[in-house]
């Protein structure tokens, strides 16, 4: 891949001055590829975490215990109503200060890396919205359908897992797509705690090479492509899961 594109961008630079160094310099190219990989991993893991939180949180919200429901409510309010940037800083600098350091044979490293903090923080942020999204999906599932499962011996967890959630998930998909796209975009904030994802990486590249406009363009296009892929994937899923004979 690199061998293929390097000469083209090398020539582009020489003839026009447009410096896409990440496409013709091996070192910067590797940096760029690592940035892509970290960004995608960050999106993947924080999305998965936010989904797990969403599913469990929405389930808790159907529970009897007012205390549990209150805790989840508090969590939602807190994380929906504070900026994700502040949450990241709070997790990394606030909580990070209290986590132990581990001996890595001579030097010390925090037990929880910046990347892990970013996944935790972003997953918890996205999860707060997912709980609400799944909860309203669950509320839209006819109670009688869940009751039918109950009368067929399903336990309350089985009813949730096999009936309520699959139906709620379908109802929630459009709203979920919005939130997951938004979460993918928000991962760029991990830049502030030095997670070497795309934004951070390109920032380093343009500081080293003074090619801000070119790298900005790449950064923009990167998110355009990533977000389009996520949205397209989820829309395809929506189509695939559409209930036969219901609505659309």
């Amino acid at each position: 891949m690199f061998e293929l594109i390097a000469p083209i961008f090398q020539r582009l630079f020489e003839e026009t001055g447009w410096n896409f160094i990440i496409f013709y310099d091996r070192y910067e190219y590797d940096r760029f590829v690592t940035g892509i990989s970290i960004s995608l991993q960050l999106i993947l893991w924080s999305t998965l975490l936010s989904l797990v939180i969403g599913v469990l949180g929405a389930w808790v919200q159907t529970a009897r215990s007012a205390l549990l429901r209150g805790i989840v409510d508090g969590y939602i309010q807190l994380f929906r109503n504070t900026p994700p940037l502040i949450q990241l800083l709070f997790f990394y600098f606030g909580l990070g200060a209290f986590t132990p350091q581990v001996d890595m044979g001579g030097y010390y490293e925090p037990m929880i890396s910046a990347f892990t903090w970013a996944v935790l923080s972003l997953g918890i942020f996205g999860g707060a919205f997912n709980v609400e999204i799944f909860r309203s999906g669950i509320e839209a599932v006819p109670k009688a359908t869940a009751e039918a499962a109950e009368s067929l011996c399903f336990s309350s967890w089985q009813t949730y897992a096999y009936v309520t959630l699959p139906l709620a998930f379908r109802i929630s998909l459009p709203a979920l797509t919005n939130n997951l796209v938004s979460l993918a975009k928000t991962t760029s904030l991990a830049y502030v705690i030095s997670v070497p994802e795309m934004t951070y990486t390109l920032n380093q590249v343009w500081s080293d090479n003074i090619n801000v406009p070119e790298m900005m363009l790449v950064l923009f296009l990167f998110y355009v492509v990533v977000v389009s892929l996520i949205a397209a994937g989820l829309h395809a899923l929506e189509k695939r899961l559409a209930l036969p004979g219901y609505g659309r």
Binding site: P142, A144, T145, A148, A149, Y162, P166, L167, L243, G245
Partner: peptide, 8 residues
């Protein structure tokens, strides 16, 4: 009365 089948 309303059958309540699992639509999925």
């Amino acid at each position: 009365q309303q059958y309540n089948l699992f639509p999925h």
